[in-house]
Design a protein around this nucleic acid. Structure first.
Length: 889
RNA sequence: AGGGGGUUAGCUCAGCGGCAGAGCGUCUGCCUUACACGCAGUAGGCCAUCGGUUCGAAUCCGAUACCCCCUACCA
């Protein structure tokens, strides 16, 4: 669009904007232009790669996703503008249990049939159909946020390529002896009817009871009292254990007891795992339903009796009186029956931790079952090495410790799940239970062998942990794999550090043989505005998409970026988002002002720096600093600092400072047009670069504004990201403007306090220390007079005038001639307070400076600074005293 | 039980060895021709407590007190 054309719609720029009118327009333009593909960069560009943590296909984009994707998009757009070939791969997770449950419920609601009515094959077709239909919903929600992912490389954790990777990994592990099948204690969810890994267990503390139960000795010589929190499991007891050191029970060891409510006799054994001080010091041992009992059972060669089944009901082995009872009903009955036999020896309340299913909150049943496991230690060791050696860097660093701690104590991973929906396990069995797993790259065994395939599927995480390379086509040696692996950054919440991040590092180091990513940025959990955890029951869930509709995606993104630096809880909500929408509006309106000021002529190129006015050099100097800060902060994932630097520069310096300075300059009829041209060029350039700085954070409104300002919104995402410009470093200009703005503030404050309106013209005298500050200030005389509304201004000489108001700005003394000079009582009180504070600081500084140790050991620069400061404070103190009634405070 | 983290302005948090910062909120003026999603100005903090290191500590070390999180088989 030419400048002429852009002019035509200038008058229509309203004072506030409606994000809905342009956000998707720019997004479509960017996606369709191919910008989001790494191929849009030159062939020799250095790649920058990220993979989206796959959201659950059954879900909707929640605010946690919004945070992670926003931070990733900031990185992606920033790196793209720096000229990198950015590949950011989006995708979704097939979510085994969740999808199966949703599809099952849907099937039942529609047809009244269950998956068993349908049969496995047909049900799986349904899951596939459902997943492919739904997965675009959540990807579209990611688009709504503005994410610049390469959708041409989109993945689905159960698609063909990803399935190949999963199969390959399992076969490798099996033939390396690292995947094994064993009867072990596992976490069973009776409701989901599947085993879960240790990580999928939520431990909650609960008030329960500790019951004491008497087990009579078989020889009639007495009884032994055991303590338990789960009486129903006694039906599966196969021993009673005591500590070998325990004098009380020494004589019992080796005897047998009659297990009440059954006809079994079980031995009393000695095992040091028993804590003598807990309960009665005697433990009932139920190897089939308790992890530590399971270990004890193995050590002591005890039988294992499964009395609670996969459905959570008592089994036949629990005895006829109990078979079929729910486990919690069985507990009540066992207690009643023991009571009836006079075997209860009391109870007390007891706080214990119980495991619940992460998905459905059902109390899990620990039971022994035949499952597939990964022997994880060897993988963990490689992963720890990669982290220790700095090949993977954690940000914030503190998570490294948590990672280390977990990895050191890592336990084997149960990877089989009793579901239909998932990656099927490539393992076959013959009639005798012999296992056959194909070698990596080999096909399924021929049907002619008559083998039976394992009916189970893999844990969903068993596909997710391969994401950083499976999305690039591994195990094939693809071009993408060569160019884009290892990836650069993984952004995700700390809550899945173990579930996912640690496992990805293990998988990366083990399979492709290189770390999956060089950096991990772990963000906190988004909470509501008051810091409460969002939950459906609390009703405080904030929908990021609704927020985008209400405030614009740009405002939501900027808010999340600002929050990301805060601790582990990020308080997010409407008032904050509204605040950052105000920032977008500010940029919008500043541009409206600039457009008006710039006129119709295309902007001239920037004049040589030294030939520019002081305020022009000042703003360029500040712009350069802001660029440096934004880049340095993003480099170390301090999104909050980057966004904050941008916000402060644009609002406080550019709008409140520069724009206000520029107004009288550009409106001054006496100023030569050539000078105005130079300033217009600066105004234009600073705004242009500010929009470029802003673009990664607010990709929509930045383009819309650029379009209005310069007609090139579409080019903005590819523009070079602004860097600092060392030639624009101008400390004198910065110092001068500081005095300038300080002086203006003081005089405005004086007007406010004295009730002097803007129309009252004042006279002021500035006393400036020796050096180049005086001529520098002198050059801005007109500006100062105009902004402070002065009739007369003297720069130089003593700022001590009979009957004037005296103050100081840093090292500069200020005297303002007023109609009434004596201080009001409030002013005097305030001033005395300030002088008292100054006295304190001065005394401290004097003490410091006269301290031998300080003079000997502190760096010269620090001493010099202190000396200068003392001088400033002392001179300020003097000036404050001038028209204070009663003189010295 | 073990591990990690927190305690700074009314609220949410930055700062992590050399004059206490931001955003939001409060208060006081203003619809000043970019912007009331705004402008100008103001108030507000023994940086949890106690010791130590240092010329110098909100900042480093130790202890205490609350608070949070993670891991864990005490029946």
């Amino acid at each position: 669009m030419s400048p002429e054309e852009s002019k035509s719609h200038r008058p229509t720029l309203p004072t506030t904007f409606d994000p809905a009118t342009f956000e998707m327009k720019w997004y479509r333009q960017q996606e369709e232009s191919g910008l989001f593909r790494p191929e849009s960069a030159p062939a020799d560009a250095v790649p920058f790669t990220m993979v989206i943590p796959p959201p659950n296909v059954t879900g909707r984009l929640h605010v946690g996703h919004a945070l992670g994707r926003t931070l990733e998009d900031i990185l992606a757009r920033w790196r793209r503008m720096q000229g990198r070939a950015v590949l950011w791969v989006p995708g979704v997770d097939h979510a085994g249990i969740a999808t199966q449950m949703v599809v099952e419920r849907d099937l039942f609601d529609r047809t009244g049939r269950t998956r068993h009515d349908l049969g496995r094959e047909e049900f799986l077709d349904l899951c596939h159909e459902w997943g492919y239909a739904r997965r675009h919903d959540i990807l579209d929600q990611i688009r709504r946020l503005g994410c610049s992912c390469d959708f041409s490389r989109e993945y689905y954790t159960i698609d063909e390529v990803r399935s190949r990777a999963v199969r390959r990994v399992f076969c490798e592990l099996y033939h390396q002896g690292l995947a094994y099948r064993d009867n072990r204690m596992v976490n069973w969810c009776p409701r989901c009817a599947t085993v879960l890994s240790d990580l999928e267990v939520n431990h909650t503390e609960q008030n329960g009871h500790l019951w004491s139960i008497a087990y009579p000795l078989s020889d009639g010589s007495g009884e032994i009292v055991v303590a338990t929190t789960r009486p129903e499991t006694m039906l599966g007891d196969t021993a009673v254990a005591v500590n070998p050191e325990d004098e009380r029970y020494r004589d019992f060891v080796g005897k047998s007891v009659d297990l009440p409510l059954t006809d079994r006799k079980i031995p009393v054994i000695a095992d040091s795992f028993v804590d003598m001080t807990f309960g009665t010091g005697a433990v009932k041992v139920t190897p089939a339903h308790d992890a530590s009992d399971f270990e004890a059972g193995r050590r002591n060669n005890l039988a294992s009796v499964l009395v609670i089944g996969f459905d959570g009901k008592m089994t036949k082995d629990a005895g006829g009186a109990y078979e079929g009872l729910d486990r919690f009903e069985a507990r009540k009955k066992v207690l009643r029956d023991l009571e009836a036999r006079g075997l209860r020896r009391g109870e007390k309340s007891h706080l214990n931790a119980i495991g619940r299913c992460q998905r459905c909150d059902t109390i899990l049943e620990p039971l022994v079952s035949l499952q597939w496991f990964v022997k994880i230690k060897p993988l963990a060791e490689k992963a720890m090495q990669a982290v220790d050696s700095g090949q993977v860097v954690f940000t914030p660093d503190t998570w490294r410790k948590t990672f280390d701690e977990w990895m050191r104590n890592i336990r084997d991973w149960c990877i089989s799940r009793q579901l239909w929906w998932g990656h099927e396990i490539p393992a076959w069995y013959d009639k005798d239970g012999n296992v056959f797993v194909p070698k990596p790259g080999e096909p399924d065994p021929p049907e002619s062998l008559g083998l039976t395939r394992d009916p189970d599927v893999f844990d969903t995480w068993f596909s997710s942990w391969l994401m950083p390379f499976s999305v690039l086509g591994w195990p094939e040696k693809t071009e993408d794999m060569k160019r884009f692996y290892p990836t650069d950054v993984m952004v995700t919440g700390f809550d899945i550090l173990f579930f996912w991040v640690a496992r990805m590092i293990m998988a990366g180091c083990w399979f492709p043989g290189d770390v999956p990513f060089r950096n991990v940025f772990l963000h906190g959990l988004v909470r509501d505005e008051r810091g409460h955890k969002m939950s459906k029951t609390r009703g405080n869930v904030v929908d990021p998409l609704e927020m985008c509709d209400e405030y614009g995606a740009d405002a939501v993104r900027f808010t999340l970026a600002v929050l990301s630096g805060t601790g582990r809880d990020l308080p997010f909500g409407k008032s904050r988002t509204a605040g950052y929408r105000a920032f977008a509006t500010k940029v919008w309106n500043a541009t409206r002002f600039a457009i008006g000021m710039l006129g119709d002529e295309p902007p001239k190129p920037l004049a040589p720096f030294h030939s520019l006015s002081l305020i022009d050099r000042w703003i360029l100097s500040r712009l350069s600093s802001a660029c440096a800060k934004v880049n340095a902060s993003l480099e170390v994932f301090r999104f909050d600092e980057a966004a904050g630097a941008l916000y402060a520069f644009f609002w406080s310096e550019f709008c409140d400072g520069y724009v206000e300075f520029v107004k009288p300059v550009l409106r001054d009829p006496a100023l030569p047009e050539a000078e105005k041209e130079k300033t217009r060029a600066v105004l234009h350039l600073v705004l242009m670069r500010s929009l470029a700085l802003l673009h990664p954070f607010m990709p929509f409104v930045s383009c819309e504004i650029r379009e209005a300002l310069n007609g090139d919104g579409a080019r903005l995402p590819q523009e070079a990201f602004p860097a600092s410009v060392p030639e624009w470093d101008d400390p004198l200009a910065v110092a001068t403007v500081e005095i300038l703005r300080g002086t203006i503030t003081r005089i405005r404050n004086l007007r406010a306090e004295r009730g002097l309106s803007q129309t009252v013209v004042l006279e002021a005298i500035l006393e400036v220390p020796e050096g180049d500050l005086a001529p520098s200030l002198e050059s801005q005389r007109g500006l100062l007079m105009s902004l402070a509304r002065l009739g007369t201004l003297t720069i130089g000489g003593k700022a001590e005038v009979e009957g004037a108001f005296h103050d100081a700005i840093g090292p500069v003394g200020l005297a303002v001639v007023l109609p009434r000079t004596e201080l009001t009582p409030e002013e005097a009180a305030k001033r005395r307070k300030e002088i008292a504070a100054l006295d304190k600081d001065i005394a401290a500084l004097e003490a410091k400076l006269s301290d031998e140790g300080f003079r000997a050991k502190a760096p010269a620069a620090v001493i010099e600074k202190a000396r200068k400061q003392l001088q400033d404070l002392t001179s300020r103190r003097e000036k404050l005293l001038v028209n204070l009634p009663g003189g010295s405070a």
